[in-house]
Structure formats: structure tokens, C-alpha cells
């Protein structure tokens, strides 16, 4: 029945009366509420302004250097800003290689731990394990740096040597100045490499990746888990057919969030590597560099133009991490679709 054939004067007719429009709810906001809204909005705008200021002021200070070099800023490996010969080719390569090693090491570790905590671990252990992962994220980076410098480095040399002996034919794993089967070669060619720095950074980013993945895994629908069990799946079968496909977004997003952290890590990398300003593609060999340790290394003795060059390097790092993080949080947010609705 449409509203046209409803008989006037018979309100129970079921149809909509011609004058029956939904009353407009007038949620009259009082003065206090309006002030409250303005204050909250002001807080939001202030935070946004601070975050925007990071990019804006970096760009502002970096223009001088960027104008001087132009496009060659991306392709020059040397860093001598006072003679206008500088660029981020070497440091950017180093940053990416360190981050790559970090992600390669941390991904299986984080994935395994996240699956362990959400699926395998005894229930009473679970809270403790989650706390420990969080604690690992809270350990200061300088402590990781100390550990990598004084403890890990000497133990990794064995592994580095083994890798370069057996897999030296891969260009990435080649080490100049060593020959396979010559164990007496100096161990110092393996120290202070991107590989060691990458392992230390991996330990720092694993907790972040692990907590993102665990959160997504624990949201895998119980019905489908039970369905998999009811069809006779083992626990690993259930993980493969339900948890992993459901959490794929979380795995990718968490890995990328870790990658973003790995790109920006400063102090631990600075302590471990010995800086070089050539493009160094051999990750096992001593000497590498990263954008953030370049800044930490040179900010003290930089001239005004040198500072501008450092700002330009910082801007490049900022843009790179921002792009990675944006992608990551979009992927994670999509994989959590529905989880954000109100309970």
C-alpha cells in the first residue's frame, strides 16, 4: 500500500500519511558542548599541524641543497656538501640493504612467534608471552646497539664466513678479498657490515611485526576454525586453511610496518657499521651506510649548507618511511574490516 491510497483519519492503516514525515531530531547543542567540540577539533588540528610541520620545515630547510644539486642528489654517492658534491645514492642503498636483511630475518621469527602465541601456546602462558613481546619493543635501541656491537658481531662472523664461502657466487653475498676454503683470512672483513646491522635491527622490528600479526590472527573467525577441525584438519591444517589466509593482510601490513621502523633506525646501526660513501652491494662485507646514521654522523660538523644537505637526506628518509607506513596501515586497516565497528 502506498501513501496515496491510505484513508485519512485512519492512522492504523499501515500506509504513510501524507503529512507523516519523520520528525527532524533537534539535538540542540548547548554552549558547553559547542566549546567542547571546538576544543577537541583544535586538538586534532594541532596534532595535524605538528605532523605537517615535520614535512614542511624539512622541505623548507632542504630547498637550498636540493636546488644546488637537482636530480643528481639521488645518484651521487659521495658526501662532500662543502664542494657541492653530495647525494644519497650510497646511504640510500645501505639503508635499503639493512632494512632488507632485517625484514628477511624478522619475518619468519615474527610469523612463527605470532602463530605460536595465538594458536599453539598454552592458554596460561599467553599473557606472559604477549607482555614479553611488548617488553622487547620497549627495550631502548641503544641497548640493542651495545649488544650487537659487543656480543653479536663476533658470533656472526662464523655465519658470514660460511655464507660467503658457499654462496659467494651470489653477487649480494660476495666478499672482496676472501677466497673460499681459506679459513685464515682476516675476520675483520666481515665486521661492521650491513648483515650484522640488519640482524640487530631485525630484533628491534620483530616485536612490532609480531604484535600486528598476532592481533589479526586472533580475530580469525572461530566458526571457520571449528569448521576446519570438524572436517578433520589437524592444527597445522587449520592454521594453513583458516588463520593464514584470514591474516594475510596482517602479515603483509605488519611486515611493512616493521620495514618502516627498520628504515629509520639510527643509533643501533650507527654503533655497528663503519660508514663508507660508495655504493656497497656486498652485505657481508665491512662498511655500509644509512641515511639516519649519516645525519647522526655529520650534524655536528656541518656548515649551514651542509645542514641543508642533511635536511634533504632526512626529507628523503621521511618520504620513504611515510610511503611505506601509509601502505602498511592501509593494508592492515583493510584486513581488519569490521573489527572497528562498535561492540
Amino acid at each position: 500500500m502506498t501513501s496515496a491510497d491510505a484513508v485519512p483519519g485512519r492512522p492504523w492503516g499501515g500506509g504513510r500519511q501524507p503529512d507523516d514525515v519523520p520528525r527532524r531530531l533537534n539535538a540542540a547543542r548547548g554552549l558547553g558542548d559547542r566549546i567542547f567540540r571546538y576544543q577537541l577539533t583544535a586538538a586534532g588540528v594541532a596534532v595535524l599541524a605538528i605532523m605537517a610541520a615535520v614535512g614542511v620545515f624539512l622541505l623548507l630547510r632542504a630547498t637550498q641543497a636540493l636546488k644546488a644539486t637537482g636530480f643528481s642528489f639521488l645518484t651521487t654517492a659521495a658526501w662532500q656538501p662543502d664542494v657541492h658534491d653530495f647525494g644519497i645514492a650510497a646511504v640510500l642503498t645501505g639503508t635499503l640493504l639493512i632494512a632488507m636483511v632485517a625484514v628477511l630475518v624478522s619475518l619468519p621469527l615474527a610469523l612463527g612467534t605470532a602463530l605460536f602465541i595465538s594458536e599453539v601456546a598454552p592458554r596460561r602462558l599467553r599473557r606472559t608471552l604477549i607482555s614479553m613481546v611488548d617488553l622487547m619493543a620497549a627495550v631502548p635501541s641503544v641497548v640493542y646497539g651495545l649488544w650487537g656491537l659487543f656480543f653479536l658481531q663476533q658470533h656472526v662472523i662464523t655465519l658470514s664466513r660460511w655464507l660467503s664461502d658457499w654462496f659467494g657466487w651470489i653477487p649480494l653475498l660476495k666478499v672482496d678479498g676472501t677466497e673460499p676454503g681459506q679459513p685464515l683470512a682476516s675476520a675483520s672483513v666481515y665486521t661492521a657490515s650491513a648483515f650484522v646491522a640488519g640482524i640487530v635491527v631485525a630484533l628491534m622490528v620483530t616485536p612490532i611485526q609480531c604484535s600486528v600479526m598476532r592481533e589479526v590472527f586472533s580475530q580469525a573467525p572461530a566458526g571457520e576454525r571449528e569448521g576446519a577441525y570438524a572436517l578433520g584438519a589437524t592444527r597445522w591444517g587449520m592454521i594453513r586453511s583458516v588463520t593464514l589466509p584470514y591474516g594475510r593482510g596482517g602479515i603483509i601490513g605488519g611486515t611493512m610496518l616493521g620495514l618502516g621502523r627498520a628504515l629509520g633506525e639510527t643509533i643501533a646501526v650507527y654503533l655497528i657499521i663503519s660508514p663508507v660513501f660508495v655504493i656497497q652491494p656486498h652485505i657481508l662485507q665491512t662498511g655500509t651506510n644509512s641515511v639516519s646514521s649519516l645525519i647522526a654522523l655529520h650534524y655536528g660538523d656541518a656548515s649551514e649548507f651542509g645542514m641543508s644537505a642533511l635536511m634533504a637526506a632526512g626529507l628523503a628518509l621521511f618520504v620513504l618511511t611515510l610511503a611505506v607506513n601509509f601502505t602498511a596501515s592501509t593494508i592492515v586497516a583493510r584486513s581488519r574490516s569490521g573489527a572497528q565497528s562498535e561492540a
Binding site: 629509520g264 639510527t266 645525519i295 647522526a296 632526512g314 628518509l317 621521511f318 607506513n325 596501515s329
Partner: peptide, 10 residues
């Protein structure tokens, strides 16, 4: 959310 992983040196 994107800024949570802002490199601290930046």
C-alpha cells in the same frame, strides 16, 4: 597512524 613509525632522527 602513518606517523607512529616516524624515524626518530627526523
Amino acid at each position: 597512524e602513518a606517523m607512529t613509525a616516524l624515524p626518530s632522527i627526523v
